[in-house]
């Protein structure tokens, strides 16, 4: 079948189909590729302590900020604090910058950053819940698990 001899509308339809397939195909391929590189897994304090979280990759981790664990620098904006699951697992988070308004000792946080091989977490972003009622689903699970296991 010669392309040139096809009727115009049929050729148009063929071109259209090719165009749609190529367009959406490359769109999907691009999206999946980018998705693979940009998903950040969430780890609980227990998983961090057990060494289940990958070192040196961008991940998210969260729990409750332990009371009295926030240490600030006197010269710049570096701060560190301990994040726990209210049981026995906890780890240290280092951060440089401004903490969110709802960051409080004893409250939940989620940190996005990289786990160092010494087991301490370097955060590039710290998120706190944005009002009194709302709790991110990830944290809810961490705390519920901790409570239910403590009850056993």
């Amino acid at each position: 079948m010669k392309f040139g001899k096809m009727k115009t509308h049929r050729r148009n339809r063929l071109l259209l189909v090719i165009f749609v397939v190529v367009m959406s195909g490359s769109g999907i391929a691009m999206a999946l590729l980018a998705l693979n590189e940009n998903i950040n897994l969430f780890y609980s304090p227990q998983e961090i302590v057990d060494g289940k979280a990958p070192v040196g990759q961008l991940i998210r981790a969260g729990g409750m900020v332990r009371e009295g664990s926030v240490v600030r620098s006197d010269t710049d904006l570096t701060v560190s604090f301990r994040v726990s699951d209210l049981k026995n697992a906890e780890f240290t988070v280092h951060f440089e910058g401004i903490l969110p308004d709802l960051f409080r000792e004893g409250q939940g946080v989620i940190a996005r950053g990289i786990l160092r091989d010494d087991g301490e977490f370097v955060a590039e972003e710290v998120l706190a819940k944005h009002d009194e009622e709302y709790m991110p689903p990830e944290l809810n699970d961490v705390i519920e698990q901790a409570h239910s296991e403590a009850a056993k």
Partner: peptide, 25 residues
């Protein structure tokens, strides 16, 4: 919606999709 699908298929593993994904696509 990927985080929802991921959680459903892996039995509770939670992920977030970072802003770089959206920017690059």
């Amino acid at each position: 919606l990927y985080p929802l699908a991921y959680e459903a298929f892996t039995g509770g593993d939670k992920i977030s999709v970072g802003p770089p994904y959206f920017a690059s696509v």
